[in-house]
Design a protein around this nucleic acid. Structure first.
Lengths: 348, 348
DNA sequence: GAGGTCCGTGGAAGCGCTCCCACGAATTTC
DNA sequence: GAAATTCGTGGGAGCGCTTCCACGGACCTC
């Protein structure tokens, strides 16, 4: 009998038991233990039972590194937030996406890891992480136009789905809300209320969501036969403070405005504050519509009329598209655009 | 010549090149390539150069799974948020911790992955993930008293540091802010202003931070020779909405209060709103002190006097303690309590 | 009852890497 | 000038796992 076997049968147990140790204890071969662990049907009930008993007794946990080395899978996917501004982290929209993806993954054998890339160096680190085989796929929230990560990742052949349409027209799988449509409906609602001067507070122009929501406002304005007056436009950055400042500017530019479509709920909350500071009543003097249907939309004063995105649907599609790519059964660069919906509350 | 070698030298390159292929191309052995990759000094300049050229030419990226299998290290640490309530995600304090830990790790070779556990099932998944050797260590934000993850993880021998003192007195490494001291100073400040009825809005009683901040208020109250009047206490949940509701209750219980220490800034913002709704002026009628020094403390109306935690220090210590455990040079269950500091603004 | 099929099982190869050990050449020491 | 040291290098074992392949026994078929 070989020394190693002697040691195993003599009862000396390592802190982290291996397949072999389980096999020896169960009186079967390594291969059979592997089959039991991987739920292969080709195992007799007796053998299965013996193995399971041994696993329980030794507290055996398979070593995923070893497994991954041969299977070429890690059963792990990454959600990457590529964004220099840390504050975005506390944006409720982002939190919802994380929550949704995580929930969609909970029903699968996949584990979610969250990675953040604030600068080029961290992006490199993440690219390496992905390329070194630590994850089977990546959901990427790359918000700014100049981000390199989408290229690097898709170039490296890592299964990839973007959350949000890519800024340029590149061919890559993505899931997005119908931002243009949502903004359009919001603006039409304001117009339908009989408002004469419908302004907009946009998001950053280097983010596609910011651009698309502006586009929706613009189209609705044009379709209503109104001129697209530059003084009715102010740019924000999707944050509450940015929204407050932009609203103040907007009031200075266009004191006669009587409605405003704001490109995100946090910005709308800031806008509400600026409006109050300026002595304008909402919705009597100025009607306000936000975007996102964040939790704060129900608690602010007045409760916010806003455009809701189907988050569950979106995160579900995100995971679905990614899994298909991982399985290798995906059509190249599949995309989904999910419908939005106006939620009426008191602000418009 | 063996077939495999023929294939390698004949120019056929796999999509993901291995050490062997680099070795063949560079005309050295696998061992030498490994030395170059791992920056061993025992390599001649010529060999190093040849290897580096080959690596560049093949776009070689080491397979971390294979490496981990033998080194028993992954160079990855996890930040685990064990918290059923998803909304906590958008809490600025949490975002700051993530940011800080991530920044502290950016200077090292370690990669950070973020994991969330909302229920027992996800906790199991994470425990498995850690035990299977996917991470070298864990920073755990386990906020509630009944959480099992600390036990499971430390029981499994995974290097572990808690962010926040454990609820019970268990022996485990942790880093925490001096919540009791901070709350005490805040309360003393209110008392020092000459306020007669200093109330408090607490956090959840199953979170140690909630308990400690209440304790600080209590001690300061007692030390000032005041009675700890139950009607001066209302419980919140660290959220803005919860703070608003609790403040409304507090005003009903103790209409004569003239100061309130609020256990978190988001709650304080809610409290400010409730106070305004009730027609109380801040700070004239009611002085308010918050906790956390979140970004919102500077933008709300009036700007919030609050207790700041040394986040950089805390996250630095967190990473330091964890690294020491990973290196195996840590004393058992090291702990750090970081000093807090009162930041005076307009609300008190 | 001889040949065929099926099924559970174990042996063994190998995933890509690190690292111990031994080897030979260059350098040093007495 | 012989022995000892140093240094860069390559061979090879092995990390823990999956999976192909072959084997033997139980079962069926004509």
């Amino acid at each position: 009998m070989a020394p190693v076997t002697t040691e195993l049968t003599s009862g000396a147990r390592s802190a982290t038991p291996t397949l072999d140790e389980v096999a020896v204890l169960a009186g079967v071969s390594r291969a059979t233990v592997s089959r039991v662990v991987n739920e292969s049907p080709k195992v007799s009930p007796e053998a299965r039972e013996a193995v399971q008993a041994a696993i329980a007794q030794l507290h055996y946990v398979p070593n995923r590194m070893a497994r991954s080395l041969v299977t070429r899978r890690t059963d792990t996917v990454a959600l990457v937030l590529s964004e220099p501004n840390t504050q975005v982290f506390s944006d409720p929209f982002f939190a919802s996406i994380v929550h949704g993806v995580s929930a969609a993954l909970a029903d699968t054998e996949l584990t979610l890891v969250l990675l953040t890339a604030r600068d080029a160096r961290e992006q490199q680190k993440i690219a390496r992480f992905a390329r070194q085989g630590h994850v089977d796929g990546v959901v990427l929230m790359s918000l700014h136009s100049e981000d390199l990560l989408p290229d690097v990742l898709s170039g490296a052949g890592v299964p990839l789905v973007l959350c949000g349409r890519p800024y340029d027209g590149r061919s890559v799988a993505y899931v997005d809300a119908d931002n243009v449509g949502g903004a359009r409906v919001a603006t039409e609602h304001l117009l339908g209320l009989g408002r004469r001067r419908v302004a907009t507070l946009t998001g950053p122009t280097d983010m596609i969501a910011g651009v698309d929501r502006y586009l929706g406002w613009q189209r609705a304005t044009e379709d209503a036969g109104r001129a697209v007056d530059p003084s009715l436009v102010a740019h924000g950055d999707f944050t509450e403070a940015g929204g407050e400042a932009a609203m103040a500017r907007l009031l200075a530019q266009a004191p006669d405005l009587d409605a405003v479509f704001v490109a995100s709920d946090p910005m709308a909350v800031g806008a509400l504050r600026a409006l109050r500071a300026a002595g304008r009543r909402v919705p009597e003097d100025v009607a306000v519509v936000g975007f996102d249907d964040a939790a704060v939309a129900t608690t602010c004063d007045p409760p916010l009329t806003t455009v809701a995105q189907p988050l569950d649907l979106m995160t579900g599609e995100l995971v679905e598209l990614l899994r298909r790519q991982i399985e290798g059964v995906a059509a190249p660069a599949e995309t989904r655009t999910c419908p939005t919906r106006l939620v009426r509350r008191a602000s418009a």
